[in-house]
Design a protein around this nucleic acid. Sequence first.
RNA 1: GUGGCUAUGGUGUAAUGGCAGCACUGGGGACUGUGGUUCCCUUAGAGCGGGUUCAAAUCCCGUUAGCCACCCCA
Length: 433
Amino acid sequence: MSFVFRAVRGTKDILPDEAEYLRHIEVKAREISSLYGYREVITPVIENRDLFVRSLGKDTEVIGKQMFIIERGDDIIALRPEATAGVIRAYLENNLNSRNLLAKFYYFGPMFRAERPQKGRLRQFHHLGVEAVGSSSPLLDVEIISLAEVILKNIGISGFKIKINTLGCVEDKKAFAEKLRVILGGKISDFCQDCRERFDRNVFRLLDCKNSSCKNIILGLNIKRTDYLCGECLEHFDTVLAGLKNIGVNYEESAHLVRGLDYYTRTVFEITHSELGAQDAVGAGGRYDNLVEELGGEPTAAIGFAFGVERLLLVSSAKCQVPSKDLVFLIALGKGAEAASVKLLYSLRQNGIKADTLYEEKSLKGAMRRANDLGAKYVLILGENELKKNVVVFKDMASGEQREIKTEEVIAELMALAILKAKPLPYRLKGQI
RNA sequence: GUGGCUAUGGUGUAAUGGCAGCACUGGGGACUGUGGUUCCCUUAGAGCGGGUUCAAAUCCCGUUAGCCACCCCA
């Protein structure tokens, strides 16, 4: 083949089969989020770069290496690597905080990170997430985690695992980081190269290093939550766990679970799926009680999570049936029948019946084969013979039975078939049957 | 970002330096205006750029992309 353009590195086309499934996930998630009282917010894909630097943390990898930057004059704009910062920006900019109510949002959209692509890791991918801004109640932590679980179950995904931990409030985090640096500082030469680099950037990361000798050192230190969390944070976490048990959410406590974005505080969680390989988190989230203040608002507690939609798509147990309307396939035979069949085709659609036809000249056999391939429920055949008699042939593909129906009665007869779920469109074309 | 593996019709694959083959899909036919099964015919291929060789899908270098692990994260 000659030269063809290709999708840029790390991006991919979502073709109809997959798109249909993606939208199915989206619709389900919307439905359920709405049941939980969340409403959609649509924020721009581009934001001021500093918004992300401020919220995610300047030393994080996402900020340091992975942002797509657009410079225009003096403006430095970034393609959003995640949505939470933008949602909080919108919340403050539009004074949604002024009513002093809990604000509950959900969102769906593309995110961008210039990472090296891998399975489950794209440069443009989609997040489906929720944020609840304005309460530090542990019941809200429970609600958010439950919501994540309910969405997964309702889109037919099983085999996932919810891991949960608490990082403590900002003061706790700060104190713990200092303490860790003191404890680990002396032994830093025993750690792997990666850990030595992480020591300054994000010392918590040493706690979940996969290197076995690092792991052993950490385990040997026997670090307990009670050593570094304040009473309030401990109580908060206990209430969250009790709340999850109360409504039957299965989780796994993971003392070493940490997050790579600076804004997280207190409860953090991650949902993993074993079918995914190295990039095994299908979703993650947590509290960020400090972020609203960090972005210029009053101190306001908040929590949220996001799913990686493409990762949900990779989970094979998720490949459930997407319901779709049954198709009526119209076959016109010969030039003489063309005008009448076009009229019939448009009338079917006007009446809410999913209908299609063949635009290329084909033998009846070829046309039938196509109807079969498309999974047509019924076939209508309109040729010279039928035209003369003012009828169409109506064939049920499953039973193979067929009969003639008077042209003026076709629409009414088809609409009476409940299986087609026909609902006429409100705007009517002229001259239909 | 680091290390590694891979790249053959639309798809999945075979051929270890010597005629690019198979299956599926697509198109046509057997079956004149009736689909699914079966059978027959048929279209279509080496990511890109160099090099070695009489000869390269095969060996070498570069590049691009995908994948795996790390890193990071959803």
